[in-house]
C-alpha cells in the first residue's frame, strides 16, 4: 500500500520559510533513515509517505565476491531525494572521517547534491549507542576544515552541543533518547537549553532532533520545543505498518511545527472558562466555589 503525499488534502505544509541547513534548503522538516526495513519496496513506499526530501544512508563495505543482492540506490529516486551520507557505526574520529570521504565520493559520482554534507556519528558505547563527545568534536572540526557541512549527532548535553557548534557544525543534532530505543524525548529540559544556547544571537541556526523517536507525538513534541527538524528511522521502519506510520510522522511534524509557530498558551493551575460567564441559566453565581 502506498499513500502518496500529494494525494492527501490534509498534507498542507506550514506557511514558513524553508529550513536551511548549510547550503541546503529542505522543504520537509522530516529527515528519515533508510535502514531496518523488511524490504526495499517497503522502504521506498515509506520514504514517499513521510514526505521527506532528504534521506540518510550508511557507508558499508561492498560484498564483492558474494553478490546478488539488491542495491538500495535502485530504490531511491535520486532526482527527488537529497542523500545525507552518515558515518553510523564508527567509533573513532579517523574512521568517521574515512566514511565521510567515501560517502562524498559515491554521491559525487552519482551527481547527487548531498555530496557536500554528512551526518557525523561517532559512537562511544555499543550498548547505549551514545556518542563519544571528544571524538565527535575532533571529527567535526576536521571534516569542516575539509569542506564538509557537518550535521552532528550528539547527546542531549548542552555543553557538548556548544562545543560542536564552535567546531563548525552546520547543524547540531541532539538525541531525544538512545538510537532505536523508541523512548521519545527523555530530557526535554536539556533540549530546551540546547535550543536556547545555540540559537542565542543566531536564531536561524538549525537544531535537529535526532534519534529516540517512538511515535508521532514524540515528533510533535520535538517541534513544539522549537526543534527545526527531526531525523528518525526505526520508529517508521519497525512499526507494524511502516507506510502508515510514515504518514503519521509527516502529519506530526506539520502539527508540531504549526503549534510552535502559533505559540502555546501558558499552563495554569486553575481552569479558565471558554464560554462567557454572562447569561448562564443558573441560580448559582458563576464564579462560586463548589464548597460554598
Amino acid at each position: 500500500m502506498s499513500i502518496a503525499s500529494d494525494q492527501d488534502p490534509t498534507a498542507t505544509d506550514v506557511d514558513q520559510p524553508a529550513l536551511r541547513v548549510g547550503h541546503h534548503t529542505l522543504g520537509s522538516r522530516l529527515i528519515v533513515g533508510t535502514g531496518r526495513y523488511d524490504t526495499m519496496e517497503q522502504m521506498r513506499d515509506s520514504l514517499q509517505a513521510s514526505g521527506a526530501d532528504c534521506v540518510t544512508v550508511a557507508v558499508r563495505r561492498e560484498k564483492l565476491y558474494e553478490r546478488g543482492g539488491q542495491n538500495i540506490l535502485d530504490f531511491i529516486d535520486l532526482d527527488r531525494y537529497t542523500l545525507l551520507p552518515n558515518t553510523a557505526g564508527c567509533y573513532t574520529a579517523a574512521d568517521a572521517i574515512r566514511a565521510a570521504k567515501l560517502g562524498r565520493e559515491i554521491l559525487r559520482t552519482l551527481g547527487n547534491p548531498g555530496s557536500d554534507w554528512v551526518k557525523l556519528e561517532v559512537l562511544g558505547d555499543s550498548k547505549t549507542l551514545l556518542p563519544d563527545p571528544a571524538e565527535t568534536v575532533t571529527a567535526c572540526r576536521e571534516l569542516t576544515a575539509e569542506g564538509f557541512q557537518v550535521l552532528c549527532y550528539t547527546s542531549d548535553c548542552p555543553v557538548t552541543a556548544q562545543r560542536l557548534k564552535q567546531a563548525g557544525a552546520a547543524s547540531v543534532m541532539p538525541a531525544g533518547s538512545p538510537i532505536g530505543s523508541g523512548q521519545g524525548l527523555l530530557n526535554p529540559n536539556n533540549l530546551r537549553i540546547i535550543l536556547e544556547y545555540l540559537k542565542e544571537d543566531d536564531p536561524d541556526y538549525p537544531v535537529i532532533i535526532d534519534a529516540g523517536v517512538g511515535t508521532a507525538s514524540d515528533v510533535s513534541q520535538a517541534f513544539e520545543l522549537g526543534g527545526d527538524a527531526v531525523l528518525l528511522n526505526t520508529a517508521i521502519a519497525h512499526a507494524r505498518d511502516p507506510v502508515r506510520m510514515a504518514t503519521a510522522m509527516r502529519h506530526a511534524a506539520i502539527a508540531g511545527r504549526n503549534a510552535f509557530l502559533a505559540g502555546r498558551i501558558p499552563k495554569r493551575l486553575y481552569g479558565t472558562a471558554s464560554s462567557p460567564s454572562e447569561g448562564v441559566i443558573s441560580t448559582r453565581p458563576y464564579g462560586s466555589q463548589a464548597s460554598s
Binding site: 533508510t34 544512508v57 550508511a58 557507508v59 542495491n71 559515491i106
Partner: peptide, 10 residues
C-alpha cells in the same frame, strides 16, 4: 583496498 557502497541506515 576498501570498496564501499551505500546501504540503508539511520
Amino acid at each position: 583496498v576498501e570498496v564501499v557502497t551505500l546501504v540503508g541506515g539511520g
